[in-house]
């Protein structure tokens, strides 16, 4: 009996609504964030992650309002990411009711933001999101960190970057394989394992989940502490309770 592995549904939010994309093309409305959050909570989600995918800065304030409303009705940890740039952004999200804030691109532009925010608010609320893609360089390959949703290469080695982020105060890492994201072929287990073996903080595996076995593999083979998925839950293929039952039948500790 021990700490449960976590299942975290990810909700993409823009213009005040949850949206879901099909192969990143058209975005379809998937409902009111509070209602979707409540539904996942009732199904047994261990945490919720909200990703603000609003492109323009005009509607950025909306996510604060959404988090405020979700936090009044859903009593599990809430993580918010997307466009977090400053210490002030982190403060505003925490004050709105987020328990953790996920930082990606701005950590690459200014790594010190991880130190500043974790020393101000505590490591427990600073998640660093790393998007990585296997990159060939001569005869060697490495996992390269990408920003802006996978569009911009950084030259950074994802494993070294993960270690650096933890040393600056990240309390958790969210690792997304750009090679796998949207493919439904499962997590990049080698990537997850390579990072999980190197750092002390919990790892959330993301990118590529297509069926329930993938969740099990992320934990058992990848060594992840939590698994994040969007489409298998949004499209109703699986309920979180089904995912948990399957994990349990594979001898993974879960919260029922």
């Amino acid at each position: 009996m021990s700490l449960a592995k976590r299942i975290i549904p990810c909700l993409d939010v823009t213009d005040g609504r949850v949206v879901k994309g099909i192969n990143f093309l058209e975005l379809k409305d998937a409902g009111d964030p509070v209602e979707v959050a409540k539904k996942y909570n009732e199904q047994g989600a261990d945490e919720l992650t909200f990703l603000d995918i609003t492109a323009s800065s005009d509607n950025r304030g909306l996510i604060l309002h959404i988090i405020e409303n979700v936090a009044k009705e859903v009593f599990i940890p809430l993580t918010v990411g997307g466009g977090v740039r400053t210490v002030e952004d982190v403060r505003n999200l925490l004050n709105a009711g987020a328990d953790k804030v996920s930082i990606n691109t701005s950590a690459i532009i200014n790594p010190d933001i991880i130190y500043q925010t974790s020393s101000r608010f505590g490591s427990q609320c600073i998640v660093v999101a790393i998007d990585a893609k296997l990159t060939l360089e001569g005869s060697k390959s490495f996992w390269q960190v990408f920003t802006h949703g996978g569009r911009n290469a950084t030259r950074l080695n994802a494993i070294e970057w993960a270690e650096k982020m933890v040393s600056l105060g990240a309390g958790e890492l969210l690792i997304t394989s750009m090679d796998r994201d949207g493919t439904k072929k499962g997590f990049d287990l080698e990537l997850i394992k390579a990072i999980s073996d190197k750092v002390d903080v919990p790892i959330i595996a993301s990118g590529g989940v297509g069926d329930l076995q993938h969740l099990v593999d992320g934990i058992k083979i990848g060594g992840a502490d939590a698994v994040l998925a969007a489409s298998i839950f949004h499209f109703g293929e699986y309920k979180i309770s089904e995912a948990k039952a399957f994990m349990k039948s594979n001898h993974i500790e879960i919260r029922q």
Binding site: M1, S2, L3, A4, K5, R6, D46, S123, Q124, G171, E172, S196, D197, D200, V201, P202, I203, I219, K220, G223, D225, A226, I252, E253, R255
Partner: peptide, 16 residues
């Protein structure tokens, strides 16, 4: 931890 992986710190998540 009980699955043989390195113990993570912080202790984060749902425990009994």
């Amino acid at each position: 931890d009980e699955s043989g992986h390195k113990l993570k710190i912080p202790h984060m998540g749902w425990n009994e």
